[in-house]
Amino acid sequence: MALHQQPPFFNPSVPFNIPIQGGLQDGMSITVCGRVWPNADTLEVNLQYGSDVILHFNPRYEGGSGFVVHNTNQKGVWGKEEREYKTPVPRGQAFALQILVTQESYKVTDTA
């Protein structure tokens, strides 16, 4: 198995789209760092394969209380939306999301 070490990207334009070298592999860890604007309504982190969104991680700040939406979009059809009523990425704060890829799921944690 070849190990691909992708260099970090600093201050990319948003939206930021770039292929992951070697594709997603079981055990791979992806770290996304940034800052949520103080007046943001939402933040989106999507992992895509072609036009399919294989992981949609979407903290939302509607009505002052936060929640996170997890979903997928395959062939233009959204899957069953999952909501978690806790926001690991507060408005106005820096964040570092770590996405662990496994064969069964994606595990997202805030390491900031």
Rank of each mutant, 00 (worst) to 15 (best):
A96E: 06
W78R: 09
T102L: 06
G92K: 06
C33T: 07
N17L: 05
F10R: 01
D52N: 15
R91P: 04
G63S: 09
P19H: 01
D41E: 15
L97T: 03
M28G: 01
V36Q: 06
I54F: 06
E62Q: 11
P59L: 04
P12C: 09
L43I: 05
S65K: 07
M28N: 05
I30G: 01
E44A: 07
I20G: 03
Y106H: 05
G50N: 02
V101P: 00
L97Q: 03
V32A: 02
P7G: 05
Q74V: 15
V14A: 10
E104N: 10
D41C: 14
S29F: 11
I30A: 01
G66N: 06
G92V: 07
G50C: 01
T72L: 14
H70A: 11
N71Y: 15
A94L: 03
P38C: 00
N11Q: 14
V36C: 07
G66D: 06
V69F: 11
G50S: 00
G79S: 08
S105Y: 06
T72R: 08
I99P: 01
P12N: 06
N58C: 10
Q21T: 14
F57A: 00
P7T: 00
K80S: 08
E82I: 13
Y85A: 05
G23K: 06
H4T: 03
N11P: 00
V45W: 08
T42A: 10
K107A: 10
P15A: 05
V101I: 15
T87A: 11
